[in-house]
């Protein structure tokens, strides 16, 4: 069995909601991430999917140690990252890097590409001594498929896809072990998105990287991930291998989510059974009692309001699901037709 590079245990991140300016009073908490546990193995890609507001980006911030968790732990090779400080924290940051969603706002417009990609070396001079930095940056540019001659250009001289490559080069600069990708391709056009996805796969094979791949696009996640975790309103509702989640989902939310994804094949339009969810995602300030999905779930019973379903393997299934009534259901009849 491969080792776990990151272990997340009962992670909780609440943001206080305050009232008043001078005399601040906390009136509630946004329960952005509320009890999430998972492992990331070396060299694998863990996909995290969910709709807006489910807490996937907060999860990324906590994994990066940009936010301290309210409770719970993020263990990097057994070390609790939120307890680290000073030199130990700096060493940790080398190992976990982030690729952000928006290639337009995540690059400083006043810095050249060379400075942007070389900046990590300022903080971690041990990786590249001053004299060799430009060569290193050029190597990185080449690695991500950009012209090394363009080292002196500014971000605005690049297209969206190229900027995302710059972001990836910057994340790779320190040779990290883990890269957290927060919606890395969702701002890109279809043809460019495919190029960036192929690049991410190539880099993973080359450097043995582990990815936490956060996205709302289920097709993209399936394409890149070995394992997939589905989040809803701060909780993980189902975790499994790519096959288990996409072919044999047991949680009603996963089933609804998958059924709603449009498949680019018009011949399937009539024999697709979309599970229609009514209403919107409830507020994370006061989530429903018991199962958080019960307000939109067609299977909801009294039990669902009373008892929080645990994320565990249920009878008749091979992977953990947080539903009292978890069961398989054919959701993409496309397979039989195709």
């Amino acid at each position: 069995m491969t080792e776990n590079i990151i272990e997340v245990r009962d992670l909780v991140k609440h943001y206080p909601v305050t009232r008043g300016i001078v005399f601040k009073k906390t009136t509630g908490h946004v329960k952005a991430v509320d009890g999430v546990s998972f492992d990331l193995k070396a060299g694998e890609t863990l996909g995290v999917v969910g709709e807006s507001g489910c807490g996937k980006s907060t999860l990324a911030r906590v994994l990066m140690n940009l936010e301290r968790p309210t409770s719970g732990q993020v263990l990097y090779k057994g070390q609790d990252i939120s307890k680290l400080s000073g030199g130990a924290l700096r060493r940790l940051r080398r190992q976990i890097q982030l690729v952000m969603q928006d290639p337009y706002t995540s690059l400083n417009p006043r810095m050249t590409v060379g400075d942007l990609i070389g900046e990590p070396f300022e903080i971690h001079p041990e990786v590249a001594p001053r004299g060799s930095r430009r060569t290193k940056v050029k190597e990185l540019l080449d690695l991500v498929g950009l012209n090394p001659e363009h080292i002196n250009r500014y971000p605005h001289q690049f297209s969206g896809g190229q900027r995302q490559r710059i972001g990836i080069a910057r994340a790779l600069a320190l040779r990290p072990e883990v890269i957290v990708c927060d919606e890395p391709v969702s701002a890109l056009d279809v043809s460019i998105q495919a190029q960036v996805m192929n690049l991410l796969e190539k880099l993973q094979a080359e450097f043995g990287l582990s990815y936490v791949f956060i996205a709302h696009d289920l097709s993209v996640v399936r394409h890149l991930s070995d394992r997939v975790a589905v989040m809803y309103l701060g909780k993980m509702v189902e975790v499994g291998t790519e096959d288990e989640i996409y072919e044999r989902p047991t949680h009603p939310y996963t089933q609804a989510l998958l059924s709603a994804v449009p498949v680019p094949d018009p011949t399937l339009r009539d024999n697709k059974a979309i599970i229609r969810l009514t209403g919107d995602v409830p507020s994370p300030i006061s989530p429903p009692s018991g199962c958080r999905f019960r307000t939109r779930c067609w299977k909801a019973q009294d039990l669902c309001a009373q008892e929080v379903p645990l994320l565990q393997i249920r009878p008749g299934s091979d992977h953990p699901s947080a539903c009292h009534f978890a069961e398989r259901r054919e959701i993409v009849p496309a397979h039989e037709v195709a």
């Binding site: 056009d189 043809s191 097709s219 496309a334």
Partner: peptide, 24 residues
């Protein structure tokens, strides 16, 4: 054809995506 080839599909486990090279 290039567009259709470059989208990952939910109902298919992906191989490497065949991309359209270059930029618009």
């Amino acid at each position: 054809l290039g567009l259709l080839n470059s989208i990952p599909r939910l109902d298919e486990k992906g191989q490497e995506l065949r991309t359209i090279k270059g930029l618009p």
